[in-house]
Design a protein around this nucleic acid. Structure first.
Lengths: 203, 203
DNA sequence: GTTTCATAGTGACGCCCGTCACTGTCAGAG
DNA sequence: CTCTGACAGTGACGGGCGTCACTATGAAAC
């Protein structure tokens, strides 16, 4: 049985290097490349003939989910394992829709990471059970595309006028979209709506 | 020369284990304990006679800075190296005031971590240069204690009435404190003020 | 002992915000 | 073709929000 070739992507150099050290302890695993942004992932997988890509979701440039899309379109044989800080239901949903083979949060015990890589490499799905329950309970985003745009523009604490200018809309329209988003999220203010949407991975 | 005994604290089990693997690769370093929350740090340092404690800032219960305080009060000989995700100026300031010997962000190349531990153990200060500049430029928090309380209660997007009830204040007083915080941060709304204060590590 | 400042409160003003009702266009489903 | 739903806009209403002025107390600073 040959070794499993891994590509590692995480924007935090220290965490990336540490994960590499952890995985290289396993005799049957070999980290062949490390990258710090999503747009380098695909090329690294091609150059180093990776068997499994271990990706963080939060990354500059291309995020882990878009990188998964790229890999799955181009390299049918390469498996993808998403490892992320935030166990947001929306992340899991989008990751699986992008074709990810596994999804772990960084709360997972370190000993289980190598096993997860092996399972994914063997063609199995690896997904945190608690997160699946959350994901089902939460459902997908109730927000329409435009409501999402407006709410995303509102997270910084901008005024309605500023949002309207950013998106080239009238203030009234912005208020209507925000009102709809507030209603759908069950919030009382747009700040709360933004927080709820962020926590669920809808933005 | 004997080995340096390390205690590791990070709330994310995967990162914690990975950092342990990275540091244990060094022949002169020995991770003798790993903990997942701040209130276990002091006991672990005592039980395992740690030379250096490597602490994350963001942790449940006691955070890394309060844990540093505990260690420095009780164990004069134990050095503390803070390792954190967010390079917020206020974090650096508070960490050094608590007596921390080093402060690294997780963007640091993995190779430098072991060296940082050795320097700290040798009695040197290890601090990211760019972060020092930020910290000086930003200065310490301009907010009073009460303004900080009120602004912290406002981050979730609550209404003024809700904040007033939480802190047992009149609504008018809450509005006054918020107004002062908005003025001092140069923001236009309380959501923006909350964001600015959070980014600077003032909350 | 006076000054300064943080804290707490009241009351008032004006503007922005959240909501609602209603109009209209356009794309896709039936 | 009709119907639905997303998107965009207008206009109006009421309430909450941000600001200001002013009062008052207690604790540090000089």
């Amino acid at each position: 049985m040959s070794v499993i070739r891994l590509v590692l992507a995480d924007d935090q150099a220290l965490v990336r290097g540490a994960l590499a050290a952890l995985l290289n302890l396993e005799p049957d695993l070999d980290v062949v490349a490390e990258v710090g942004s999503g747009d380098q992932v695909l090329q690294a997988c091609i150059d180093h003939r990776a068997d499994v890509a271990v990706l963080d979701v939060e990354m500059p440039g291309l995020d882990g989910i878009e990188a998964t899309n790229q890999i799955k379109r181009t390299l049918a044989g390469t498996r993808v394992l998403i490892v992320t800080t935030f166990g947001r239901p929306g992340y899991l949903r989008r990751a699986l829709q992008s074709g990810a083979d596994g999804f772990l949060v960084k709360d997972t015990p370190a000993k289980q990471l190598a096993d997860a890589v092996r399972r994914v490499h063997g063609g199995l799905r690896v997904v945190d059970a608690a997160l699946v329950a959350d994901s089902i309970a939460t459902g997908e985003s109730p927000l329409t595309a435009r409501e999402t745009d407006v709410l995303r523009a509102a997270v910084g604490g901008d005024t309605v006028a500023a949002i309207a200018e950013k998106l080239a809309l009238s203030e009234g329209t912005v208020r209507n979209h925000l009102s709809a988003a507030i209603g759908k999220t069950g919030a009382a203010t747009r700040a709360e709506a933004a927080r709820i949407a962020t926590d669920n991975g809808w933005l």
